[in-house]
Structure formats: structure tokens, C-alpha cells
Write a protein that binds this DNA or RNA. Structure first.
Lengths: 338, 338
DNA sequence: TCTGGCACTCATGACGCACGAGTGCCAGCA
DNA sequence: TGCTGGCACTCGTGCGTCATGAGTGCCAGA
């Protein structure tokens, strides 16, 4: 078990390293922190911390830097979440309040997060499966070609073309539209399948094929996980990553371009609270030298999507976590209002 | 005036430099190209080219590299557009044919362009102002709160909330919806303002305020240039930019995050054909060490949006131009079909 | 258990030096 | 007039040497 002071030493090392980006030595530590002991004692503590795998030295005669395991301990036991200052809160609220539609909300959120944390921000659009249907619209583009538009309570709009097996009259169309809406409006996406199950039966034989096709398309739209969209921003902050450039940021940029990877990244966090993945805790190899801080946000009590930031493992965890949490809360409020 | 051979020397320098990324000397030139003259002669030619500002040497005792002016001459006079190979064309078509909706088309296009050119790709969504209205939908979210949805012939969907000055009945809503559609469906966005100008007058006094508000929102949606969306991809290719990393790509990443900058970048190209902006020809400072190749694309004969790539000034211009042109053509076809 | 002292390691930066790619210029030749 | 070979010169690059100093581990004493 590590003594109280050794934990204090680890905290000091993390803080200094995050600030200076340089390996920190025993002497510098005692000078910048009031540990109440001499450098020699700190050296012993550091040797112990190194044995346990919390810190490491890049070269024999250099200072120590925290390992992933060290950061993990720091985040779990030694650091809290640093709340934002009042002016920062006001700035967030003002900035987000100006949004005109969902795209704008997400866009502003991304920029805000990137600016506050000075890292790469990722925001998932409110997920379809967890939200409710506000309205379903059906239009005829041609006698046997429809457009299906689904509007969600979070303001998201999904559209699909539907090619019908047979021409579909205007009357039937209005009928279907009305019946569809009376059944699914206000309902959760996950409930829709059983709500519309028996709908084709109540139509003329001629129209049943078309109705079934429309319903199939509707369900496909709702369920389709792959359609989950997200937005990223602040990639310019990658340039503050480290010194050995291309090798580090290349894989990160590549990972950021793959929506699937990012969605998994955010999705992994099953925890309703905040999730922090440090270095090798990230499954994706390209992100092994980064840390990801993510959290769910939602319009009501429930999370409908996630957002987070990707930065170097050497990041200001308390500050980043504070910013991520605050932004998530305000976005939730905005969504609830609209 | 430059002699034929000197132009040939310039072409050789550009080609070699693009290939090797290293300053090219007189001896290497004569070895790799059949110029039919000795290195000494080439040296004289190079001195002349340098006097004219087409090439420069990084250090006194190094080879030459092309200047922006040199690339400009190369693009204008010395290089054609390299057509894609048959397999490449097939691959493009296959890849784009799989798209299910507009977002997907744009997304695939971006990835395709980035992969083909190994550079950063930018694709603008089909512009609202130049396309036509397919359908306008109005829904009541609350007695005095509506949602306006506009669907375009390119498959794009825009939505806005409308807060009404007074409650608006279901009958009035249906009436407005029908009249709106009969007037604007199938019409160009630019014609909409005058088509709806006198619409409020034909409504009850009580509803006129609401109708006017709805129309104002509609016009705002259509005109609003700032809402032009675009998608970028292939940012990982920035890592192949040069050796002096952070300084070069930082401003590029920043520029790429500002939609306004990018839209201007693509928009600048008034020319209906392909536009190439080399180095300092780009107004935005952050892009002074990049070249931009852009071209319009459209579903009919007319361009409805632009797409292009951003890469180092030292790029394979003929190949890049070929890829950009080919992709634009195929995207146009896809849009016309859907 | 902490502290001061001491020898040791080793990354870093400065300096000097040789190498060689590349140039400019010039005299000679077609 | 234009091309060519030759030659001296420049200067960036890579390499080995060396001194410096931050930082360490260990030990004896309090």
C-alpha cells in the first residue's frame, strides 16, 4: 500500500508534468511543492512509485513521467473535477443560446468544447433509438415513389426515398399518413415496431405491399445504428500534442475520420457518469497515446447521446472533466427547451 | 521570353521535385530526363529561370525548387489533366452508386476524393439558392409554434422552428401549407420571394401575422448563405505535408475548421471550369503554403455546388486535377439520377 | 524513517572537421 | 551565338569528441 505522502508525490509529479511537459526530478518537486521533506526522501518515494508502475523514466538520468497507470490512479483517487468559473459558465450559456437548429446546437457545442479544453471535441447527434417521434411525413414524388420524413423530439430530421411496388393514390397516402401519426407520434422509437405491426392488414389489398414497404423503410430508419452522426472539431489542437509529430497524430487523425471508431469510443462508456479512458485503455491502437473523456447528455433525465474530448494522456484531467461535464449539462438544457 | 528547352527544364524540375520532395540539381536532371544537353547548359537555363522567378534555391549550394510562379506556369502551359484509368473510373462509380441519401453521397465523395488524391478533400452540399423546392411542410408543434421543413430537389432537408405571434388553427395551417406548395413547389429558390409576396393578404386578419412570420422564416432559410454546409475528409493526409510539421499544418487545420473560409475558398472560383489556386494566390494566410484545386458539380447542366482538394503546393497537379474532375462528373450523374 | 553527501549515468549542446552536392564562371569549340 | 568541359568556391550535412549538468541510486549518520 502506498503511503499518504507517496500519493502526494504522485499528484505533484502529474501536475508538474502536465504543466511543463518535461520529466520532473526530485529537486524541482521539493522546490515547487510544500512536501516538507528533502529531495532524497522524494527520490526514495519515486523509486517505490516506479516499482509499482505508476511512473517511469524516459532515460536513465532523467526525471520521471507518469505512466497510464499513474494517470489512472490520479484520476480515480487524487483529483476531483474542477468546476468552471462563473464567467465561463455564462459564456457557455450565451454561446449555446444563440443556436437556431439542431445542427447549429451540435456545431456550437463542438466549437465550445474544443475551445474550453483546447483539445479535439467530439459530439454525437442525439440518438434516434432513445428519442421519440414528433411527426412522420409522407409525400408523393411520383405515383410509385414516396419520400418519408421522420422528425424527432430532439429536432433531428431523417429522410428516405421509398419505391413502391404499385402506384399509391393520394387518398391512401393521406390515410396512411394520418394513421401512422396517430399511432407513433410522441412514442419512443423502440416502441414503434409493435405499434405499426398490424397496420398493413387494414388497407386494401392493392395497397398492402406499399404500406409494408413504407413501414419497412421507417423501421430501418429508426433502427439503423450506422446512421448515427457526429461532429468533430478542434483538430488544430492536435498540433500541441507532442514533439515527435507525424508519428503520433497521424493515427489519431485517421481514427477521427472513422465514425465507427468514434462512436465505439463514446459508446463504450456504459457508465451513466463521466468516463475517462487513458492511453492503452483505449481499444483502438491509434488512440493509445491519447485519453478520452466522455459523458452522456440528454434533454430529459435520460442520456440520448454522448460527447467528449480526445487529448494527449498528458492533459489537465480535472479541468477537462469539469468543462466536459458543464457543456453536457447546458446542451441538455438547450435541447429540453427547444 | 523563355525558350522551348527552358520550359522543358522547368517541367522536369517540377516533376522531379514533386516526386522526390528534394531540391533538384542540374546533374540529376540530365540523368533522369532526355534533355539532350549537358549539365552546364542546364545550369545556365536554371540561372535564367531563377532570374525570372520561376524557381529558387533554399541555400546557396543546393538544388532548385519551383516557386508558386513556377507551378503556375507549369499548370497553365506545361501540364495537361491526367485522365483516370479505367479501373479507377469503375471504382468511383461503384463506390458512389451505393449511396442511400444525400448525406451518404457527400460522405462517400469526400472519402473518395481524399483517397484518390491522398490529400484533404472538401465537398460542398448542393447549394440551396440554385436548386428548386420539391416540397414545403408545416407542422404544429404547439398552438403558437410551428415547424417548417423545406425539401429540395437535391434531397436536402432544412428545418426551422417558427414562433407565431398568435395561435394558428389547424384549418389555417392546412390552407397555408396547400397554397404555399402550389406556388413554390418545383420553383427555383431565387424565384420564391416574389412568388409568395402577396400571400399574407389573402388570409384572415388574425392569421396574417403568423403567415408573414412563416414566410419570413422561409425566405431566411432559402437565402441564408451562411447555412451552406460542407464536409471535409482526409485530414490524416496532412501528415505527408512536409518535414517542419506543426508550423505548417496548424494554420491549415485551423482554416479547415472555419466553414466560412472554406466556402470562400471554393466560392472564389467563379470560373465554370476547374480552378487551381497555388500558394500565395490563396487569400487566406494559413493556406499560403497549400494549393487548392476546385471545380463545380451539378445535377443538370448547371453547377449547384463545388468540391475540391487542399494539398501542398508540391502536388501532382495533372493527377489531382484529373481525379477532381472525374469525381465531380460522377457525383453530378448520381445527383441527376436520384 | 529521514537526511546529506557522493559517485555515477547519460542526454544535450557546442565545436571542429571532412565530405560532397551543387553552383557560377570561364575559356574553348561548333 | 550557343553549347560544353573544367575548375574553384560555397555551404549544408553528418560525425566524432568533449564538457556540462540534471538527475539518479546508494550509503552512512541522525
Amino acid at each position: 500500500m502506498l503511503s499518504e505522502r507517496r500519493l502526494e508525490v504522485l499528484r505533484a509529479i502529474v501536475q508538474d508534468y502536465v504543466g511543463t511537459e518535461e520529466p520532473v526530478g526530485s529537486k524541482a518537486l521539493t522546490e515547487r511543492h510544500k512536501l516538507g521533506v528533502s529531495p532524497a526522501t522524494v527520490r526514495n518515494d519515486m523509486a517505490a512509485l516506479e516499482d509499482e508502475g505508476f511512473i517511469a523514466q524516459p532515460h536513465t538520468s532523467a526525471g520521471r513521467i507518469p505512466t497510464d497507470k499513474g494517470y489512472r490512479l490520479f484520476v480515480d483517487k487524487l483529483a476531483g473535477v474542477k468546476p468552471l468559473s462563473a464567467p465561463e459558465r455564462r459564456a457557455i450559456q450565451n454561446f449555446l443560446d444563440g443556436a437556431v437548429d439542431l445542427d447549429d446546437v451540435v456545431g456550437r457545442t463542438v466549437r465550445l468544447l474544443a475551445q474550453l479544453t483546447r483539445q479535439v471535441a467530439v459530439v454525437q447527434y442525439p440518438s434516434l433509438t432513445r428519442s421519440t417521434v414528433r411527426h412522420v411525413e409522407l409525400l408523393a414524388l411520383a405515383p410509385a415513389r414516396l419520400m418519408l420524413v421522420v422528425i424527432t423530439d430532439t429536432g433531428r430530421v431523417e429522410q428516405r426515398h421509398v419505391d413502391c411496388p404499385a402506384p399509391f393514390g393520394e387518398a391512401s397516402l393521406a390515410d396512411l399518413r394520418a394513421r401512422l401519426n396517430s399511432r407513433v407520434a410522441g412514442r419512443r422509437f423502440s416502441d414503434v415496431p409493435q405499434l405499426v405491426q398490424d397496420l398493413p392488414e387494414s388497407f386494401d389489398r392493392d395497397d398492402q405491399g406499399t404500406v409494408a414497404t413504407v413501414l419497412a423503410t421507417l423501421l430501418e430508419t429508426l433502427v439503423e445504428e450506422s446512421e448515427e452522426r457526429l461532429m468533430i472539431g478542434g483538430t488544430a489542437n492536435l498540433t500541441r500534442f507532442g514533439h515527435d509529430f507525424p508519428l503520433v497524430i497521424r493515427p489519431v487523425l485517421e481514427a477521427l475520420e472513422e465514425q465507427v471508431v468514434l462512436l465505439k469510443l463514446l459508446g463504450e462508456a456504459k457508465d451513466p457518469g463521466m468516463t475517462v479512458r487513458i492511453g492503452h485503455e483505449n481499444v483502438h491502437e491509434g488512440l493509445n497515446s491519447t485519453s478520452v473523456v466522455s459523458v452522456g447528455y440528454g434533454s430529459g433525465g435520460e442520456a440520448v447521446a454522448k460527447l467528449g474530448v480526445v487529448g494527449p494522456t498528458r492533459m489537465d484531467y480535472p479541468g477537462t472533466m469539469g468543462a466536459v461535464r458543464a457543456v453536457a449539462r447546458y446542451v441538455g438544457q438547450i435541447l429540453a427547451e427547444s
